[in-house]
Write a protein that binds this DNA or RNA. Structure first.
Length: 899
RNA sequence: GGGAGUUUAGCUCAGCUGGUUUAGAGCAUCUGCCUUACAAGCAGAGGGUCAGUGGUUCGAAUCCACUAACUCCCACCA
């Protein structure tokens, strides 16, 4: 068949993906083989593929494909995540565009919209993964809100509630005013911000009874103006003064002693509040006076509790000011901040304004809205128990982290664990299975937790005073659960291990083999899966965790839409082919390091595919004949067989350490340098000649073996060539081909051949320097004990007709070179440039003299000879001997040339 | 404020418990080649006082200390 000189991936890739699907090659079911399971980190159901997904899924595919080829029953389970906040936000936006407000819809109506959005977009990202070549078992595709997963989530909620690990409590929580939901502490990310520190005047309300006046060392009165005495409070959030219910000083603060026991007036608001004392206050910060707003700051809330202060909640859920604020009602908090500063200044209540760097919390999902601390009644999961069970498996090495440095991060978090706020004020998600009983407003709330309204009713009837309650009187909690409360069950719920504990699948596939994920979700997801695994299966969810880095652009910036530096993965695939893009990702992706993605790497991948393609073209172009195998071919086969074994073993080692980019580089070099540049050149028949059957058979075997080693990285082209290398049965695939068993490589033979390569390179160099055409064959000589095992190969590759031993009485103008201690001599007739030769020899002499000198320094050092290991000393002696002999040869040559 | 990590050729990185010819790879660069598989190629070449300082040692890119720069994570100083 005629093959184009350039490989074109597009057709090939879709053809083979379809073939794999048609033959059910991705599907797994339990059998006698050892399982190899990976569960996909479920992408957002309405998301689209970005470079991070590309990296992550390429790695998973490589691992899964390799597992299949090493006798394992590999199962890669795909699925998507309902991503409650993100998806709900998208649906709300879409509705807004149609002029529909979420508040105008019933829960059911809203969910209908959300589901249709999900059905419309939910498949996109999984379709995109197919383009990449992902060998997921699509029959198992799951969704965190499908029936099995939803049931699992609710069961777990009920179970944990019954175990007393889930509780409902009034806490200071993080509120996202845009999404209008509470967030967990992990979902708040803090950003440095340039802001202002406002120094506000709080006039003393009871000046008449001020016994101690504020003075400086000279006795001058301070903090006094026409309106009286005042304290100064430094704050970054002047808009919260309407919620102030006290001012706090440190009891030991000398400069604020005069305020003890007094009252001050909140500026503008004119509410009189007490001055309280607490050691919490930092005397050095600002003026040492702290305004206390218990409703809107965690620390203030705690102060409020200890000092029994009132709590005034001045914000509405959407971040506007509430009636309780008394001022600026209905305006947004950020607007109010600007306005109140103007108003305060106008009233002469601002002493000064300073620049200030502080950290502001933002919602992880919604990074343009600052999170507001808010006092709320929410559902929490007690985490201490889970921290206790999740720490040992990682510390004891039952779960291995790659890279291991994340063990410290993990440990740190678990040792300072906080309870997990699991309720969200969202509709898109798993609705909390809690039912409230009818109670009056001033009574404490009463509720039951149960899987169904019927069960809830049964539970409710047991409560004193509610014996006659009816099902209509129960009202189910409107809130839903944090998305991670379903993802943390993923490795279990995918195999239905919650609803049907101990079923065949969960027993076979769990624990999974490896989790491939980004380090930024180590707390959100990785840690919590370990918790749920230990809780429900008494076993770890995975044996290994491979943390990928963040994909950045080539100058190290994060990829983002606004920077426009994030390439569209699908466009890259169109341009270079999926194999090339996979290679591009993997060529620079050591575990845990960020990867600096450069399109040039895809080009490198494409070039490599082209290289393989052309090697294939060459091999297929040969005519095969029954004839004796030449000595060169026999030696080449023997050598390459050993080389292949050595690299194969090396790759095994690299995979066991998850050093995938190195494994790829090693096999890349094996194919390009050893196989194409050396082996094929050595066995290549002369133009128009045929190849002997034996060599050809070996070559096909090698090619097959190489394709298998390459397949996990570049599945498409390897399948294409493997299918065409020889006749295959219908349904057969390289995907299922096993990696051959290899023997231990003969290292002596391999290093002998490396010497041969060096000889050839030297000859090529001299040809280049002296302009001797490759076509002109040469006779060469060697001095000393040269092994002649590979002489025939030198002859073939370097076009040498005879290699002979040098006789001392010969006198031929020549160019010489040294390989190890053997000197090689190439007669070059009148092309000799004596001066150049002398210069070269002198440079060599200088180098070896210096080298010998450093060796002798060691050997003359008694301490070295006495203390170093014998083999090290022996090595140095060998260096000495070699260098001495080289110098001898070089000096002789120098003499000859100088004559 | 606490913790972790990084710093090796122009770029991205190897170099595991110190000693394998005074540091390796890929890419990029330079030189010469359109040699009948591949110019997405072939044959060559150059390029590094291993961040700095000090220490341990017969011997340090490798171990220790300090310094500097960068990165990340955690933390309720308004």
């Amino acid at each position: 068949m005629e093959l184009a000189a350039k490989y074109t991936p597009a057709e090939v890739e879709s053809k083979w993906y379809q073939y794999w699907i048609n033959n059910g090659l991705f599907h797994s079911q339990p059998d006698h083989r050892e399982p190899y399971t990976i569960v996909i980190p479920p992408p957002n159901v309405t998301g689209i593929l970005h470079m991070g997904h590309m990296l992550n899924n390429t790695i998973q595919d490589i691992l899964v494909r390799r597992a299949r080829m090493t006798g394992k029953n590999a199962c890669w389970v795909p699925g998507t995540d309902h991503a409650s906040i993100a998806t709900e936000a998208k649906v709300v936006n879409k509705l807004a565009q149609q002029g529909i407000k979420k508040r105008d819809l019933t829960r059911e109506q809203f969910l209908e919209h959300a589901w249709s959005w999900t059905h419309e977009h939910g498949d996109i990202i999984l379709q995109q993964l197919r383009k990449l070549g992902a060998s997921c078992d699509w029959d198992r595709t799951a969704f965190t809100m499908d029936e099995v997963r939803s049931e699992s989530v609710l069961k777990v909620f009920v179970d944990l509630y019954k175990k007393g690990l889930i509780y409902r409590g009034l806490r200071m929580v993080n509120w996202d005013p845009k999404a209008q939901t509470v967030l967990s502490t992990e979902e708040v990310i803090y950003r440095d911000e340039k802001s202002k520190l406002y120094y506000l005047k709080y006039y003393v309300a009871d000046t008449d009874t001020l016994p101690v006046k504020p003075t400086n060392e000279e006795g001058e009165i301070l903090h006094k103006d026409a309106k009286g005495y005042y304290a100064v409070v430094a704050t970054t959030r002047p808009e919260t003064i309407m919620g102030d219910t006290a001012m706090c000083i440190n009891p030991k603060d000398p400069k604020n002693q005069w305020l003890r026991g007094h009252k001050v007036t909140v500026p503008l608001v004119n509410r009189v509040i007490p001055v309280i004392e607490d050691r919490y206050v930092d005397m050095e910060f600002g003026t040492g006076c702290l305004k206390v707003t218990p409703a809107h700051d965690v620390n203030d809330y705690n102060l409020g509790k200890t000092h029994h202060l009132d709590t005034i909640d001045i914000f509405n859920p959407d971040g506007t000011l509430s009636e309780a604020a008394g001022l600026y009602i209905g305006q947004d908090r950020m607007e109010v901040r600007k306005q109140i500063v103007i108003d305060l200044s106008a009233a002469g209540l601002v002493e000064k304004i300073e620049d200030y760097d502080n950290k502001v919390g933002y919602s992880e999902r919604n990074q343009d809205t600052a999170v507001e601390p808010r006092l709320c009644r929410q559902w929490f999961l007690s985490m201490q128990h889970f921290a206790n069970i999740a720490l040992p498996p990682v510390l004891e090495g039952k779960i291995k982290f790659y890279p291991a440095k994340y063990i410290t991060t993990y440990k740190n978090w678990l040792e300072n664990i906080q309870d997990w706020c699991i309720s969200r004020q969202l509709w898109w998600g798993h609705r909390i299975p809690a039912y409230f009983l009818p109670t009056a407003e001033d009574e404490e709330e009463q509720f039951v937790v149960a899987l169904s309204p019927e069960e809830a009713l049964e539970e409710a009837k047991k409560i004193k005073g509610f014996e006659n309650i009816t099902i209509d009187q129960l009202s189910r909690d409107e809130d839903s659960l944090d998305t991670w409360f379903s993802s943390w069950l993923w490795p279990i719920s995918l195999f239905n291990g919650i609803n049907d504990p101990g079923n065949g699948e969960i027993k076979y596939y769990y624990p999974t083999s490896v989790l491939v994920t980004a380090p930024d979700i180590i707390f959100f997801w990785v840690a919590r899966m370990i918790m749920s695994g230990e809780e429900y299966l008494k076993d770890v969810p995975f044996g290994n965790v491979y943390f990928t880095g963040i994909v950045r652009d080539k100058i190290g910036r994060k990829m983002s839409k606004s920077l426009g530096n994030s390439p569209d993965p699908l466009e890259l695939i169109d341009k270079y082919g999926a194999d090339a893009v996979r290679m591009g990702m993997m060529l620079s992706a050591p575990a845990g390091n960020d990867i600096l993605f450069d399109e040039a790497l895809c080009e490198q991948g494409r070039n490599f595919n082209n290289k393989i393609w052309n090697a294939f073209r060459l091999v297929k172009s040969w005519n095969v004949e029954d004839k004796p195998q030449p000595d060169t071919a026999q030696k080449a086969v023997e050598w390459f067989d050993n080389m292949l074994c050595r690299v194969h073993n090396e790759i095994d080692g690299l995979f066991s350490k998850y050093r995938l980019s190195e494994a790829l580089m090693v096999v890349y070099k094996l194919f390009w340098d050893e196989f194409s540049a050396w082996y094929l050149e050595m066995i290549k028949p002369a133009f128009g000649q045929s190849i002997d059957r034996q060599t050809y058979r070996h070559t096909l075997q090698f090619f097959d073996h190489l394709l298998r080693l390459l397949h996990p990285f570049i599945p498409f082209i390897t399948e294409e060539l493997w299918q065409n290398l020889q006749q295959r049965e219908e349904g057969e695939s390289i995907m299922q081909a096993q990696l051959p068993q290899v023997h231990t490589a003969d290292t002596a033979l391999l290093s002998q051949f490396e010497i041969t390569k060096e000889v050839i390179t030297n000859i090529r160099n001299i040809r280049l320097q002296k302009n001797i055409p490759a076509k002109q064959s040469l006779d060469i000589f060697h001095k000393g004990n040269a092994d002649n095992y590979y002489d025939s190969l030198i002859g073939k590759i370097a076009n040498i007709s005879h290699i002979q031993a040098w006789k001392d009485d010969m006198n031929i103008p020549s160019a010489n070179f040294l390989v190890n201690t053997t000197e090689w001599i190439i007669p070059i007739g009148n092309m000799i440039d004596k001066e150049a030769e002398i210069k070269k020899i002198e440079a060599d002499i200088q180098y070896y003299e210096k080298f010998l000198n450093s060796v002798m320094n060691k050997l003359n050092n008694e301490k070295f000879v006495n203390n170093a290991k014998p083999e090290v000393v022996a090595l140095e002696r060998k260096k000495q001997a070699d260098a001495t002999s080289k110098l001898e040869t070089l000096r002789e040559n120098l003499k000859r040339f100088s004559e």
